[in-house]
Each structure stands twice: as C-alpha cells, then as structure tokens.
C-alpha cells in the first residue's frame, strides 16, 4: 500500500496539477525521492544546494511536523499521508 503525498498549490504544476500523489517509501526521504522519480522537478524546489530541506518547507507525517520526529529519516507507514506545507505565520 502506497503513501499519499499532499502537494501544496505552488508545487501542483510539477505534478500535472494534482493535489495528491501516491508513491512508495518507508521514510520521508525515500518518499520524497519517489516523488522526484514520479514527477521530476520536486527535488530542487524542496531541497537547497547542500541537500537539506529548505527552511521554509514544512513536512508533516500523519499531521506531525517531522522536526519533532526524525526529520528526513522519519518512518512512514504504508497508507499514511505526508503533507508538504509552506511555512506561514500570524498570531
């Protein structure tokens, strides 16, 4: 069973306009690699030149920010949802 990635508006053109993409992978890193393989162009938008996630890119696994988990190595269970969300603010 695949993992569902929720794509933010800004990146949907890379995925042919889709708001979700299903890929295989056991960690966030693998899932994002799978996303790049399925729709080339995601990697350079999500990662900086050093290969780190850009600081204004937030990734959630089952609604938890991966910075509270194991970052890019966070395990992803089959059937779960990974969300890519631009940082916002307010208060």
């Amino acid at each position: 069973m695949a993992v569902t990635i929720r794509i933010p508006t800004q990146l949907r053109p890379i995925a042919g306009g889709s708001s979700t993409v299903a890929v295989e992978g056991a960690t966030v890193g693998e899932v994002l690699k799978g996303l790049e393989a399925a729709h080339p162009g995601f990697h350079e938008r999500l990662f900086d030149e050093q290969g780190n996630l850009r600081r204004f890119v937030n990734v959630f696994v089952a609604d938890e920010d991966i910075r509270f988990l194991d970052g890019i190595d966070t395990p992803v269970a089959a059937g779960s949802t990974v969300s890519i969300v631009p940082a916002v603010a307010g208060g």
Binding site: F60, D65, V88, G90
Partner: peptide, 26 residues
C-alpha cells in the same frame, strides 16, 4: 495555534477567494 495555522495554510490553497490576512495577504 500551529495546528490551526497549518489547517489555514491548506485551506488558503483550497479557497483562493478568501483573504486570509496572515496567509495570502500576509
């Protein structure tokens, strides 16, 4: 709040006709 904020970031994408003061018109 961070949960609310995240929900609103996603809602703002779904409802571009709303002026989210601290999202799309931030």
């Amino acid at each position: 709040y961070d949960d609310v904020n995240r929900l609103c970031a996603e809602l703002a994408g779904e409802h571009p006709s709303w002026a989210f003061v601290n999202v799309n018109v931030r």
